[in-house]
Amino acid sequence: MDSNLLRVPDGSESVTDADEEIFLVYTALNQKPTDQIGPDGFRGLGHVDSRKDIISIRFELTALSHPTSSLSKVAEDNLASKSRKGKSARRTCNHADAPQTIEIELAQDKTALRSRKGDTGSVLWRASIAFAQVILQQHQFPQSNPLFDKDLLRKSHILELGAGTGLLSIALSALAKSYTATDIAPLLPLIRKNVALNFTGWTYNTRLQEGSPGSNICVEELDWETLLSLPPARRSHYYPKPAEPNAEWDLVLIVDCIYHPSLLPALVETIETVCTAAKTWVLVIVELRQEDVVREFLERWLSKGTWQLFRVEGLLELPYVIWAGQKGVP
């Protein structure tokens, strides 16, 4: 896979100093009018609706619209009483330039959110929706400077860390060769349930016919703290690998996982371990909450020494920030 999979957009800034970067992004955030920050003018919580058992997400893609992270395009309905369980994620489109609608249903585990300490992945968070909206829009209606090379993305192997409800695997797997969603063991049943809810016939133990929707999705355990606890020589044997022989990860996605300082050493070490120098691109999408936590994450990532990091501009509006990174050869 060519390292040109990801095209850093014009205007994106190189990140070499965590303090400087944090000063810049939080200054911009604090200057933004409150009623323009995040959905419904709200900043800080970030989940869609933790009260619902089933959420319906609708992505509206149109050739005339500029890609946006606005959640005004997302339908959030409580469908607990009228679930379409067993049907595939619906895509409607009449011709190449016609608007397209992608509908996804997701189950949430409200009980786990409140009963399992530190469990935030059992409900859907807005950052995943905002990121998926932009990538789907760019893929369906290419612009002059898309984030990904469409042809290279189609050949790529994607690994997601902290997949939560599994929304991104359902929304983006059709764009890639393979998509592996990972999280801690207690969350895997929810991710698998949601993949099965949107792709008829998909189960953890049964692979769909190659090329059919959802057939390239795998759901695997990857606990960052377990990886960190292992001796360095054993870490490479712990995390999942692409199914293709001798393949390595082309893209690692980390969406809205920067929230608890105790997890940062394990997360950064996991990023370092799963990535191949001069090959794997990492995208970290952050909702700007606790400044000290975000600063510590950047400090730890930059301290690895060989990473080139960029702040990706022009895709998402504050309070969301995207950092892209690729590890250089030591």
Results as ranks from 00 to 15, higher is better:
55 I>E: 04
133 Q>N: 05
312 V>E: 10
158 I>L: 09
304 K>M: 03
170 I>S: 08
297 F>P: 07
103 E>H: 07
19 D>T: 12
139 H>I: 04
27 T>E: 02
328 G>M: 15
304 K>S: 07
281 W>H: 05
270 T>D: 05
146 P>A: 01
171 A>F: 05
143 Q>K: 11
92 T>C: 13
152 L>E: 08
176 A>T: 12
121 G>K: 09
136 L>T: 05
201 G>Y: 02
196 A>H: 14
303 S>M: 00
194 N>L: 00
59 F>I: 05
135 I>K: 12
283 L>M: 15
128 S>I: 06
203 T>Q: 08
181 A>Q: 10
92 T>F: 12
243 A>I: 15
89 A>R: 04
306 T>I: 02
9 P>A: 01
232 P>G: 10
117 K>C: 06
210 E>K: 04
77 D>C: 08
224 W>A: 00
76 E>I: 14
156 S>M: 07
37 I>G: 02
301 W>S: 04
279 K>A: 04
267 L>D: 10
82 K>W: 13
134 V>L: 13
121 G>Q: 11
141 F>L: 14
240 P>R: 15
134 V>T: 08
271 I>Q: 11
16 T>R: 02
255 V>S: 13
115 S>N: 00
117 K>P: 08
51 R>T: 09
194 N>Y: 00
126 R>V: 02
290 Q>P: 03
293 V>P: 08
172 L>R: 06
253 L>K: 03
88 S>M: 12
284 V>T: 12
83 S>W: 15
296 E>Q: 11
165 T>R: 00
176 A>I: 10
104 I>Y: 11
